[in-house]
Design a protein around this nucleic acid. Structure first.
Length: 894
DNA sequence: TAATTCGCGTTCAATG
DNA sequence: CATTGAACGCGAA
């Protein structure tokens, strides 16, 4: 939803919505447990404002609070914004000594600008006259090194008074045929880059920025000087403090808002805010829990539910909202779950509807999100939607990005279930429900010693983006930002995509295996079919990042005609410059070395405290997210430094390293069973040969080949990316199998896991026979249960995610979409990202949403097919087909 | 405003 | 009605 229009709509709605003020309560709600306080709204500063809060326009409700602007500050830099009213960048600084947020408008005189090749005439005049443009400030001649040519280049800096003017003036110049650079960078990021600031770190700021007592570690600096590559030492010393400095710990509050629902199947619209807010909850990181309720005739405390928090009842919705807002904005950091799209705009528009002036509401609508004038807003819905974090930091533990799903997966705690429609529940139940949501939101940031918060802070420091930006953008924006900052650090011109693509050939030189892909990826060896005892899995530690580092891969080092010395990439033939170090190669190398040589060790160092170890664990996790994505972004057309030859070279080198290692392995008479991208499965190897191959890879390729797993037993189905390994404790590692997939019904997953226990108990080949007998019995049992309908609907449910809105499916209508459309018809809203649970039915459509289905609708034979394919995958390892095991005739139901 | 390719299983829908 | 390629979702790396 375009946030700007929210504001406009609210403004228009303003005069229609007045005079909706709730009548004074005729009676107080009945006494309940705990006894609620009934408040009349009394602002702290002026009692004369008390009546104003419930009638007529509010005069200076907000301005009696300090606006927070200061000339100088000392504390953690959390965000930089551009404020149009001031016409300046404003830094938000968290000051730990007062535990508050202050705002420091720029005093360094920084202004928006962009670069062009239009040079000033000898007489000082301009080839294109920009003086007529209102926001034009001045021109300056500067010199930057062009990373593509490797040469210094004179450029004209076009300085303006307003970031919007960058857009106008760049067009003026490009229309005249001049080239422009760095015109797409958001102004506040330019401010950070030009001042070489590191968000998340402490500063003293007044007319200039000075780092404030950054923590250093003597030991670490020694280690860097000793262990890091020559070209990275200086950079590493400069970077080290960002991993050592403790993270800021400001007071935080999580909030959640409940609104009266407009009717069955309809949801409140934040753009209109027609329906009253009936409850606002605040839960902070020091244990305070508050809930502000709206009095409604007929809705009372039942006394049945204990509310774990302070409860207050307001007879005026406006007073409730203003008071809630007053409390919320005292906190430097505000957390929500979906606050960008719901809670915050709702509060804003609702207050406008209730007659409060825009200027009196300390909420601000920025370009991409909604926040507070003097506090930061972190929307966890956006944060947990960041794919790189989902997989590398949270281990893919959640799939759906709802509060319910994320909290259940990460905290083991769900939302409260309402006993009836929210409009009708008693006030105690409403309060408990509302509080629980805010508490879950707070916990998602605090669990595991503030893992989420610390991750955000570390990524701020690495990416050089403010908290609000970093928690709302994907990994490619982080990497772009880090690289831009490094370009400024080295006085390098940031090239345009066109500069990069026109430098050398961008055409792919390898054919992808899958159609519609741009270039070839990794090798997957064909595994055998069978049962193998004693299997060692070797894998390359961070193969692709190591390739990027060792081969000096970067957008400016690949196919660069300005280079004199080259190394050719095997198979694809791209030429890698060896004259100088590539910037992304260095960044990836730096993070990789920090992670491997320092922080993975520190995370396990028993001489450190538990708290320190957890911090370093988070540090290494943040680095992992970064380096793992570093290859992929170069293959993404949307990435600012997109370079197909870089991505293609990475995979080509990866393939050649794997193949060479494979070749060496066979020379050593090692029996390779399987391998995928960066791994090799070796059958019962002699120890010496293993040591030999590890040494070989180290010397020949300068890469770490590690023993990743030692399997007592591996079952190969004969399919790629599909096997089960058992370690010495008998616990199973299942890869790729039907039984592992999230869209497989639970009863199958459970039954397969049971069966795997049988298999895991095999000690040697002699046990195979009797295991098969047990398996046969198990399958028969499943069949019988299915036939007798002993599994519940939820065990039979198939859960599939809508990758787009149901209406967007044009070519096909998959089953989960059919079920989703069914739900939509029943008034249940369904949209992109939702997980649809359905069962297979005997009717013509063949599917039904679980919540609308009965056990008798279920088509048993379809489920038997599912069971078959799940079991067949590991039966294949024994060379047995399903029919042989189950006896085909017996298993045809009905 | 978007990290990549490789591989498998199920289902849809076009084709005859 | 059988066959087949494409669409789709999900996982491995």
């Amino acid at each position: 939803m375009p946030v700007r229009s929210v504001e406009a709509t609210a403004a228009q709605a303003q005069h229609t919505a007045e005079a909706k003020e709730d009548k004074r309560a005729q009676e107080l709600p009945k006494a309940s447990v705990p006894a609620p306080a009934v408040y009349e709204y009394l602002p702290e500063a002026a009692s004369s404002a008390a009546s104003a809060a419930t009638q007529g326009p509010v005069e200076s409700w907000w301005s009696f609070e300090q606006d927070g602007y200061v000339d100088s500050a000392s504390g953690y830099l959390m965000e930089v914004r551009y404020e149009g009213d001031l016409g300046r960048a404003v830094a938000l600084i968290y000051d730990p000594s007062t535990r508050s947020m202050v705002k420091v408008p720029d005093r360094t005189g920084h202004k928006p600008y962009f670069l062009t090749d239009m040079m000033i005439n000898d007489d000082g005049g301009m080839p294109v006259n920009l003086n007529n443009y209102k926001s034009f400030s001045n021109l300056a001649v500067i010199t930057k090194r062009n990373p593509l040519t490797g040469r210094d280049q004179k450029l004209t800096k076009v300085v303006v008074d307003d970031p919007l003017a960058v857009k106008t003036l760049r067009k003026v110049l490009t229309d005249k045929g001049f080239r422009v650079w760095e015109a797409d960078i958001k102004y506040y990021l330019n401010y950070i880059y030009d001042n070489q600031l590191i968000p998340g770190m402490p500063y003293d700021v007044s007319t200039s920025w000075t780092p404030k007592e950054w923590r250093r570690s003597e030991d670490l600096e020694q280690a860097i000087k000793k262990d890091f590559a020559e070209d990275l030492k200086q950079m590493a010393l400069e970077w080290a403090p960002i991993f050592e400095q403790p993270s800021p710990m400001p007071p935080m509050v999580a909030i959640d808002v409940e609104v009266l629902e407009p009717g069955e199947g309809h949801f409140p619209d934040p753009a209109k805010a027609d329906d009253p807010v009936i409850s606002v909850s605040l839960v902070d990181n020091e244990g305070r829990k508050q809930v502000l309720l709206l009095y409604r005739p007929g809705i009372e405390f039942t006394g049945e539910i204990r509310v774990n928090g302070e409860v207050e009842i307001f007879d005026s919705e406006r007073a409730l909202l203003l008071e809630a807002l007053r409390r919320i904005t005292r906190y430097p950091v505000v957390l929500t779950f979906n606050g960008d799209n719901f809670d915050i705009p709702y509060i804003y528009n609702r207050l406008v509807n209730l007659g409060v002036s825009h200027d009196d509401i300390p909420i601000t609508f920025l370009q991409d999100y909604v926040t507070f004038k003097k506090s930061l807003h972190m929307d966890l819905h956006k944060f947990f939607d960041i794919k790189a974090l989902q997989s590398y930091a949270y281990g893919n533990r959640y799939r759906e990005k709802s509060l319910e799903a994320v909290a259940e997966a990460l905290l083991g705690q769900g939302k409260r279930v309402l006993s009836k429609m929210i409009n009708l529940v008693g006030l105690d139940e409403l309060a408990a429900y509302n509080l629980q949501d805010a508490a879950l939101t707070m916990n998602l940031v605090m669990f595991d010693n503030y893992l989420t918060w610390n991750l955000a802070v570390l990524i701020m420091r690495i990416s050089k983006m403010g908290l609000e930006e970093v928690t709302r953008s994907q990994v490619s924006a982080w990497i772009r930002s880090t690289l831009y900052w490094e370009h400024r650090h080295r006085n390098l011109l940031i090239p345009s995509q066109e500069d990069i693509s026109s430098m050398g050939s961008q055409a792919p030189r390898s054919a992808a295996v899958i159609k519609d892909k741009k270039y070839r990826g990794a090798i997957v060896l064909q595994p055998p079919q069978g049962v193998f005892f004693n299997v060692i899995v070797l894998d390359f530690a961070s193969l692709y990042p190591s390739v990027i580092r060792n081969w000096n891969l970067s957008y400016e080092t690949v196919n660069n005609p300005y280079c004199t010395n080259y190394i050719e990439v095997p198979e694809v033939g791209h030429r890698i410059c060896s004259d100088r170090k590539g910037i992304s190669s260095q960044l990836v190398g730096l993070l990789r070395d920090f992670r491997v040589k320092v922080y993975k060790k520190k995370a396990k160092d028993k001489s450190l405290s538990e708290g320190e170890r957890r911090w370093y664990e988070t540090v290494q996790a943040a680095m992992k997210v970064y380096i793992n994505a570093s290859y992929g972004v170069f293959g993404n057309e949307g990435f600012a430094l997109y370079s197909l030859p870089v991505a293609e070279s990475v995979t080509a080198i990866g393939r050649s390293v794997l193949l060479d290692t494979l070749h060496k392995a066979s020379e050593l008479n090692l029996h390779i069973l399987y391998g995928d991208t960066d791994s090799l499965f070796i059958w019962d190897p002699p120890k010496e040969a293993m040591e030999e191959i590890i040494r070989y890879v180290q010397e020949k390729h300068n890469m770490d080949l590690d023993i990743d797993k030692t399997f007592r037993l591996v079952l190969f189905s004969g399919l790629k990316k599909n096997y089960v390994g058992f370690d010495s404790e008998g616990s199973a590692v299942v890869k790729g199998m039907v039984a592992k997939k999230s869209n497989t019904p639970d009863f199958i997953k459970d039954e397969v896991m049971e069966a795997l226990k049988l298999l895991g108990s095999m000690q040697g080949p002699e046990d195979i026979e009797k295991t098969l007998v047990a398996l046969r019995y198990k399958v028969q049992e499943i069949y019988n249960r299915l036939r007798r309908r002993e599994y519940t609907l939820s065990q039979l449910a198939i859960e599939v995610m809508l990758s787009k809105d149901p209406k967007e499916y044009r070519k096909n209508t998959p089953q989960h979409v059919k079920a989703a459309l069914f739900l939509a018809k029943e008034g249940v809203p369904v949209s992109k990202g939702d997980i649809i649970a359905f069962v297979k039915t005997k009717d013509k459509v063949g599917v039904k949403p679980v919540r609308l289905a009965k056990l008798s609708d279920v088509d048993t034979s379809k489920y038997l097919e599912y069971v078959r394919s799940a079991f067949e995958q590991f039966l294949l390892a024994f060379g047995i087909r399903w029919d042989e095991l189950a006896g085909a005739r017996k298993l045809v139901p009905e």
